[in-house]
Write a protein that binds this DNA or RNA. Sequence first.
DNA 1: ACAGCATTGTAGTCAGCGCCTACATTGAGG
DNA 2: CCTCAATGTAGGCGCTGACTACAATGCTGT
Lengths: 200, 200
Amino acid sequence: MVRMPESRPYHHGDLRAALLTSAERTLRTRGTAALSLRELARDTGVSHAAPGRHFKDKQALLDALALTGYDRLAQTLDAADDPALPLEARLTALARAYLRFAIDNAALLELMYARKHEPDTSEQMAAAVDRTVGSLHRLIADAQQRGEIVPGDPDQITLVAAAALHGTATLTANAMLTPEAALNGVDALIHHLLHGLKPR
Amino acid sequence: MVRMPESRPYHHGDLRAALLTSAERTLRTRGTAALSLRELARDTGVSHAAPGRHFKDKQALLDALALTGYDRLAQTLDAADDPALPLEARLTALARAYLRFAIDNAALLELMYARKHEPDTSEQMAAAVDRTVGSLHRLIADAQQRGEIVPGDPDQITLVAAAALHGTATLTANAMLTPEAALNGVDALIHHLLHGLKPR
DNA sequence: ACAGCATTGTAGTCAGCGCCTACATTGAGG
DNA sequence: CCTCAATGTAGGCGCTGACTACAATGCTGT
């Protein structure tokens, strides 16, 4: 029995990467719930058990997907942070970048923030989160050093800012706030965050 | 010993409520992913198709569950808001109540904020969200009227506060912040929110 | 060059799931 | 009382994730 000449080689080459790419595509177009390992395998032209060689179970693939998301987010935020800008503008730009990411990658963000990662990847996840918050933390620390932000535990201050941004982002990603409303509200959000809600 | 002729009657009586109760129990103890209609039916002692009479599909049950969650949350927040308190204390109490709910009902909260509700329930969902934010909105409007909060679109101001609280709550529910850290940070969060991050 | 072996693919199977349909039991209203 | 809608049961379909045994491949040491 002769082998079909134009059949894919037995070994895919880089199945792991192909699966991740295809998975993110599905994630973006049809949501997390529509992601099935078997369909992923079919789309990639391999047997239904092949993904198991690269991801011990479905959660492992989702974790890997989340990690790539953190990489992209950290990179995005890093690129968006311009230390030369005055404080309010700098913070606004960072917030905008985060919001954009949240809007453009809602399903991925949901995955990144899901609290069901496997134990062995949860430390990588924590590190990724730290890296992500890093940009904001640096910004706060810089401003504090210049006396442009109140003194106090920088972690605590960062948390306040992070919570406000994260809240806006998740509200938007979960469709409780339209992208337009969120983006339009960013300036006011940052302004109020810096100047406070109480009259001065 | 006489054979107990007490095999459950053919008709359950209030299967819908029983399913919701059992579902929330599973949700709390084993998470959303572990929730199966068939297991739910088994636990409740009915056939695997019986739930279909009360919920047209799994999502319908999840939606119903989310709605009860909103009811409880709105009630909790309403009870926690004491208009007699001075602004900062009043806001702090509200924030604490929200955080407590988020910590105690992490999985349920995830369901409430998931953006995959069926179209026909999404309006009820939106109304529920409005009702939930109502407490905060009233608080802000009150304070604004007394001149204790800067003038401006009250919706916009509410959004700032809501984002900060929501951010803290989701960070905690997603285990990116320990419950202790979150609760300890509430006072500082509200303080900074009211007084701003910039020095005065 | 090539044998040995870990890696990475395939094929088949299993139990569990959501959902569907056909049928049985029940209680309430004409 | 008798119908009939509501609510439960039984069975089945196609899908899923996970497991296993086996086959093809390519790397590594000699």
